[in-house]
Design a binder for these strands. Structure first.
Lengths: 145, 145
DNA sequence: CTAGGTGCAAAAGGTTTGCGGTTAA
DNA sequence: TTAACCGCAAACCTTTTGCACCTAG
């Protein structure tokens, strides 16, 4: 069903629904980790041994353009990809490198309160947190005590 | 005076206060544009014709490590650097590529309301907006009307 | 049938690094 | 004096591109 939706969306954007695009899309579904292009490449290779990394990059870009997935960036590290289309922020652990989704609270639906100049049109907002995930924070605390 | 402070801070971090670091630091002071490493390189060359781009990169990293400047990233575009140490967000214009600082409003001191998992330690937060700056937004409107 | 997509290999572009000579402390 | 730093050039790593072949519609 996700594939059906994917197919339709891709077609609506004037692209073809190829095996490669389907597998790249599938590789992100149902996981909430945030794989890099290379990670996706490794996953998809299990289904399509002949796929090339360049094609994975191309597919990821196409899918992003179609709004089926989202690209996530942190510093200049490799791009990561995310199938969670709901509004959310990202958390990057400085220790283990894990990337996780951060859902907004009730009161946090909009980025109210930022003094964007009058006349500005904001089309997108990105919020990211950096620090230590619960596991790594606990490990730190143990070391310090 | 800014230089004096810069000198002290660099020394405190165990680094040397070299001409190159001073000029790189100075190249960012008093401007609120957000130059790339190459932009800084071009500026600093006027003062130190012999400086190399690699040194500019190294200086920018050292200064960032000392907390004297801040690195700003957007997608995988070249890193930009910012001398504004006050808490603020960034706005990236999709049309003209301008990067500007966005000060927080009164009610926006913290990014409260995000459901970070219990036990997480957040050390840094980054907020960025993308869209059209007032000038480009006006241009768009003109085209559409 | 054919425009668009794929695989490959090579290039691009930003950033980092190794090394011999230089300099701030 | 000497460890840190600089300039240079080469390496690195992610991402993009050109081209000949292939395939979805």
């Amino acid at each position: 069903m996700a594939d059906k939706n994917c197919n339709e969306t891709i077609s609506q954007h004037g692209f073809r629904f190829t095996q490669q695009r389907r597998e790249v899309f599938d590789a992100l579904q149902g996981k909430n980790d945030h794989p890099t292009a290379v990670d996706v490449f490794i996953r998809v290779q299990k289904k399509l041994p002949g796929i090339s990394l360049a094609t994975v990059y191309n597919c990821l870009e196409t899918l992003t353009e179609c709004g089926l997935i989202r690209a996530v960036h942190h510093d200049r590290q490799p791009s990561r990809y995310c199938a969670n289309l709901a509004p959310h922020a990202h958390f990057f652990c400085e220790d283990c490198g894990a990337v996780s989704d951060v859902p907004p609270g009730e009161a946090q639906a909009e980025a109210a309160g930022w003094q964007v100049p009058v006349g500005t049109i904001v089309t997108q907002r990105e919020i990211s947190f950096r620090g230590y995930c619960p596991d790594c924070a606990a490990a730190h605390q143990t070391l310090l005590s």
